[in-house]
Amino acid sequence: MTSVKPADRNFVASLQKGLEVLTCFGRQHSRLTVSEVARLTGSSPASARRSLLTLEQLGYLGSDGKRFWMLPRALLVAHAYLASRPTPSMAQPLLDALSERTRESASLGQLLDDDAIVIARSTARRSLSTGLGIGSRLPAYCSAMGRVLLAGLPPGDLPARVHAMRRLPLTPRTIHDAAQVIELVELARAEGYASNAGELEIGVRSMAVPVHDRQGQVVNAMSIAVRVERMDMAEFREAFLPMLKRARDTLEARLFPA
């Protein structure tokens, strides 16, 4: 987990610790002890315990006295973002239409620390189910969405950013060598899209394209995924890349009208 360093005396360190505790829960960490939370957040057990008990009293966490888990009140934080920002609401009908036409899952994400975080998603009836949802994080170094977002960084910043990442082989096909990752990101910058085949999950291919603001800066990435048995990469690219780009173009026009 990335810790933010205090900028000035107005920085509230206890709030930082509480938010780090709240966001350390996930699919693989659904019920956590104090010591587990301390390890995941890099804090002391005493600090983790205080944050956990405070969040429990506020109704964000439940507990049996040993383990803690998220309660529905935590959804208020995510809802506040989704309801107050235009991008997810404008993207959702476009993702729904794309997913309906292709019968595959479509997502929108943005760069968060070393990950691409999903901020909007649509899954068609016959689409694969990979457990992704709004708020899911995909490692930027080995996801199509992440590589597109990394391609939006200033070229001079890319090497240091990639070398500083924790890059693990998530599957036997994961490309995690820093030089190879940088090469793929630069290719994505040149070609205007990135692809992925089995690097995050065996049997799944994905493609992503960048979403630009009025100044041409990359602000988001839109992606689509398919099971490998449905089509090979060449067929996937030919069939779905034009539709993905059209959906992206429409979103850019709505978000940043001329």
Rank of each mutant, 00 (worst) to 15 (best):
A83K: 11
G109Q: 03
H79M: 12
G146A: 05
L255E: 10
E186T: 09
S14H: 12
I182F: 05
L75A: 14
G135S: 08
D8N: 13
G203P: 11
S223L: 05
Q180Y: 00
P88H: 12
E252T: 12
R85Q: 15
R85D: 15
S47H: 03
V118Q: 04
M1S: 13
L94F: 05
Y141C: 02
G62T: 05
G133L: 04
E199T: 02
L71M: 11
P172N: 13
V162Y: 00
P172W: 10
A179P: 00
A179M: 00
W69P: 07
V219G: 01
R166E: 09
F240Q: 06
R31F: 03
A38W: 00
D249V: 08
P88W: 05
S122L: 08
H29N: 15
C24L: 11
L55V: 03
I119C: 11
I224W: 05
S127L: 06
R248A: 15
S47Q: 09
E252Q: 15
H212T: 10
A144R: 08
A124I: 08
R73T: 10
P139Y: 04
R237H: 01
V118I: 14
R125V: 08
L244V: 14
G198C: 08
D96S: 02
P88E: 13
Q57C: 02
L71I: 03
A116D: 02
A74D: 03
